[in-house]
Amino acid sequence: MNPENYIVLAGVLFTIGAIGVMVRRNAIVVFMSVELMLNAANLAFVAFARMNGNLDGQVVAFFVMVVAAAEVVVGLAIIVTVFRSRRSASIDEPNLLKY
């Protein structure tokens, strides 16, 4: 199968993730959308590694997975703390800081 299709799929996943970050209200869903974007990058890296005929892209994919896991740890910690003090996981509700 033509590897270019995988690149197109990666682009579509990245776009879905980016739209998700911008339109969804729940912090957890926003966060999942960011993870989708990171995994779209992984897919692109692996597909390009196949097309370019070297292994760099596959190595990058492993590192990105580790970074994504570390991001989950920090992100959930912050979201849970905010949830505990506000009883809400909405991104829009914390609005004390403005102008």
Binding site: A18, V21, A27, V30, F31, V34, M37, E71, V74, G75, I78, I79, T81, V82, S85, R86, I91, P94, N95, L96, L97
Partner: peptide, 16 residues
């Protein structure tokens, strides 16, 4: 509360 809100905003936009 301000501090936590700042952390949430920084995190979401930074990860994005």
């Amino acid at each position: 509360l301000l501090s936590q809100e700042a952390a949430l905003k920084y995190f979401v936009l930074g990860a994005f």
